[in-house]
């Protein structure tokens, strides 16, 4: 017993190392699984508050750029208003519209923490459960797709950005409706470029074509901009094209985002979950 004690105290550094290293690894692996330990991350109250304070100061630096992008968006929205269209008919009629129901509503949020230099990038926004945000909702910005909601606390939520190796977004080419999935982070760590996969060989893809969301998933409405084709080609004998997409959103200057709330999401998921009768 005494010898054992001597042995332990002689090589104590090694044993401490084993203990603490395994604690970290356990934390790391548990955190990586589907059930994330959601206490120690930046949707936590204290950390979120700290990030919000520094972001409040930093936001002044980007004020001009943000104003420009908001003004541009205003202009676009103004163009979609009824008053912007010329009407041919002389008689005006009031129509009670019972065909169209609202499907998407948007919750505006401010980015309080952002990263683009890591392998798995996340964004923290200052909206949470209180404001109606739920796990898995889509997030967009005035210029295009941003990502998916990952964790939600009462006042903050973290967003798994497009620049995250686990993110898959259903995208299609505007010009010919071919659809595939958009990925980032496989042999490509440029924050302005993503890869579009699973588009078959026979589809004609040329440089400059627009990539938009397909609307097949319940997260994003159809037609939200993602980017434009930068380069295309076949990789060594595969039957799918490898398309590089120049992203339209500059993640490094992101400040305001909209969280997409699909009011019919539950209904669509429910009907898609029904298995065919055998």
């Amino acid at each position: 017993m005494r010898n054992l004690w001597l042995f332990l105290s002689k090589y104590n550094a090694f044993f401490f190392f084993i203990i603490f290293f395994s604690i970290s690894i356990v934390l790391f692996v548990r955190n990586n699984s589907f059930q994330r330990a959601s206490v120690l991350n930046s949707s936590n109250q204290i950390v979120g508050k700290a990030y919000e304070t520094t972001n409040y100061l930093k936001s002044y630096l980007n004020l001009a750029v943000v104003n420009d992008s908001l003004a541009a968006e205003n202009a676009r929205l103004r163009g979609e208003m009824k008053s912007a269209f010329y009407s041919d008919s002389i008689v005006k009629r009031e129509i009670v519209d019972t065909i169209q129901h609202q499907q998407y509503s948007y919750i505006v949020g401010e980015v309080v923490n952002n990263s683009i230099h890591h392998k798995d990038n996340t964004i923290t926004i200052n909206r949470g459960r209180k404001h109606g945000i739920k796990k898995g909702m889509g997030v967009i910005s005035p210029t295009g797709v941003v990502g998916l909601v990952l964790n939600v606390s009462d006042n903050y939520s973290t967003v798994q950005s497009l620049l995250h190796s686990d993110t898959r977004i259903s995208a299609c080419i505007k010009e010919n409706n071919a659809f595939g999935s958009l990925t980032w982070g496989e042999e490509n760590y440029d924050p302005m470029v993503a890869l579009l996969k699973d588009i078959p060989n026979h589809v004609k893809v040329t440089k400059g074509q627009h990539i938009i969301t397909s609307g097949y998933s319940t997260r994003f409405p159809k037609g939200i901009a993602i980017g434009r084709v930068r380069r295309t080609g076949v990789k060594g004998g595969e039957s799918f094209l490898n398309i590089e997409v120049q992203l339209s959103t500059d993640f490094s200057t992101l400040q305001y985002v909209y969280v997409v709330n699909n009011l019919l999401a539950a209904e669509q998921e429910q009907v898609e979950a029904i298995q065919p009768a055998k």
Partner: peptide, 19 residues
């Protein structure tokens, strides 16, 4: 790690560092 959202990675690295 708490600030980086990477629970465990930096903690493991600093343990190696200490050793």
């Amino acid at each position: 790690d708490t600030f980086y959202d990477t629970l465990g990675i930096n903690a493991a690295a600093t343990c190696v560092l200490a050793f």
